[in-house]
Amino acid sequence: MPLNLNPNFFEPGKRYFRDFSPGDDFYEMLIETHRDLTEAQSAQVNAKLILLLSNHIGDITVLREAMAIARAGA
């Protein structure tokens, strides 16, 4: 499966009446995860997050594509 670049957030069992809600739920959770951390701690949390999610995705062709997009223009 190629890298999905379309909106894709959802929570099983949760009903959404507005299309922006699942993405906003995710984004708030992401920022909350970093609440009150130092910059160094946040960098560590981000690194761990990438490792956890990468393993979950597993498919290295997908990860390669995501890494290329992330690095472009860096």
Binding site: N4, L5, N6, P7, N8, D19, F20, G23, D24, F26, Y27, L30, I31, H34, L37, E39, S42, N46, I69, G73
Partner: peptide, 25 residues
């Protein structure tokens, strides 16, 4: 700073990718 970094990353990706546009708030 980390919240700003994520915000700016969303904006940078939004130019080309629909998922990021949906996150622009």
């Amino acid at each position: 700073p980390v919240s700003l970094a994520f915000r700016n990353a969303v904006l940078a990706l939004a130019q080309d990718h629909p998922f990021a546009r949906k996150l622009v708030n």
